[in-house]
Computed example of a mutant assay.
Amino acid sequence: MAAPMELFCWAGGWGLPSVDPDCLAVLVSAAAAAGAAPARLGPARFSPARRSPLLQTYARFTGAPLKVHRIANPWRSPSGSLPALKTKDEGVISKMQQIITHLRKQKYNADYDLSAKQGADTLAFVSLLEEKLLPVLIHTFWVDAKNYVEHTRKWYAETIPFPLNFFLPNCMHKQHLERLQLMWGDGYMEDEEKLEKELYRDARECLTLLSQRLGSQKFFFGDSPASLDAFVFSRLAPLLKAKLPNGKLQQHLKSLQNLCNYCASILSLYFPWDGGDPLASAPRAAAADGGSDAEDDPHKRRNQVLSVLLGLGAMLGYAFLSGIVSIQRGTAGPAARRPVTIEEDEDEEEE
């Protein structure tokens, strides 16, 4: 058998196999391309008691040598970001669309049976999702103050290991703000309230259009999933499953029953044993596997120590650069013989 490709993606939460939309898209694309019917992907064969929830493989179903590592530390990814696909021939691929394209080149293509018209429809709907829905999803999770503080940052801070959880959520927040500004243009800051109102209206219309297009079908092109289903599910499922304190777009999605049933169906078909919280059961699963994680990674302890040291260094660097911590030198005279002191700004509050 060919050497397995390794997919690194964000860990699960909120009842989902991964909380990150791009990671979800790759996961569902891989499952759909592998032809993973529920009878062949049953929980008895991949239950956490028999196999670590951080490692899943679809190889025995279609020969697709793919292992999935769901982690909460992007520094453990070979690219330093998530998702990332580690391959034998092309190295590491770190963009969602590039990962899906690579899987297609390896003959794992969920769109193989689509007609030319269905292929054109796929491109049109994916473009609609990226233009009308994705920016509002970023705003909902990362910009809306109430949602970000009480839900998004809280989840990442509790899930990312110490000490990275002190600064990585804020770094991710900044990256999403910059990404949103690129999507919305320079006019974003001029009349933010008006622009948000228009964009949320467009997002609601996009959801309604998706609902009308899906109708009573199981998937968008009939009884078999395609790449469009992976894109739609990856955008809708986090919005549907997250417990958002401010869920104005979420309420509209919940009113579209066929889209809710659609997301529930994909979860039950392809991830029936996923509780959405693999990290909580990981230690017990590793013990049941007889230490298989240690065998897979003989330098695990060394990597953990290095990760902590790097995290501490990055945290201190961030603190100095942001002005949270400053170094003051004493004046000339007796006071100059005192050791250098570090003062913390007590007025600085965690955002």
Rank of each mutant, 00 (worst) to 15 (best):
A30C: 09
V325C: 07
I71Q: 08
G311D: 08
R76L: 15
V340E: 01
Y318E: 03
K132P: 09
S115D: 02
D223W: 12
A282Q: 08
K243P: 05
E349Y: 14
P272M: 06
V325A: 15
S52E: 04
A203M: 04
D111N: 11
C23G: 15
L168W: 03
T152M: 09
N147Q: 06
S94I: 00
A25V: 06
K218S: 10
S265M: 14
P43G: 02
S29E: 04
E343S: 14
D202K: 15
K154E: 14
D186W: 09
G290T: 05
T62F: 07
L210K: 07
R337L: 15
C23E: 08
L129R: 07
R76G: 14
D20H: 06
A280W: 04
H139G: 12
S47V: 14
V308R: 13
A319E: 02
L134T: 14
P48L: 13
Q98K: 12
G311H: 00
A314W: 07
S281N: 12
F166C: 09
S307G: 12
E346D: 01
N165P: 07
A30D: 02
A237V: 00
G35R: 03
S255R: 03
L210A: 06
E351A: 15
A36R: 02
T341I: 12
H139L: 00
S234W: 03
A2K: 11
F320I: 00
G317S: 03
G291E: 02
T208A: 03
H252I: 04
V305M: 01
K254H: 10
F219T: 03
P245Q: 05
L123M: 02
S47R: 12
G275V: 08
M1L: 09
R40V: 15
L269G: 00
A25C: 15
N261F: 05
Y108S: 05
E193T: 10
W14M: 11
L239F: 01
E346T: 12
D277C: 08
L207S: 01
G276F: 01
P225N: 04
S326C: 02
E158N: 12
P334F: 10
E350A: 15
S255C: 05
T57P: 04
D229Q: 08
C206F: 11
K218Q: 10
E190G: 11
F166L: 15
C9T: 15
D229C: 10
W184S: 11
L85N: 00
K146C: 01
A237R: 01
K67F: 11
E131L: 07
F46K: 10
S18D: 07
I100A: 09
A44R: 09
C171G: 08
S255F: 01
Q181T: 13
L269R: 08
D277P: 02
N109T: 14
G290E: 01
E344T: 10
G222R: 03
R60E: 09
I93A: 01
E193P: 06
P78M: 09
N261T: 08
K174Q: 13
L129E: 10
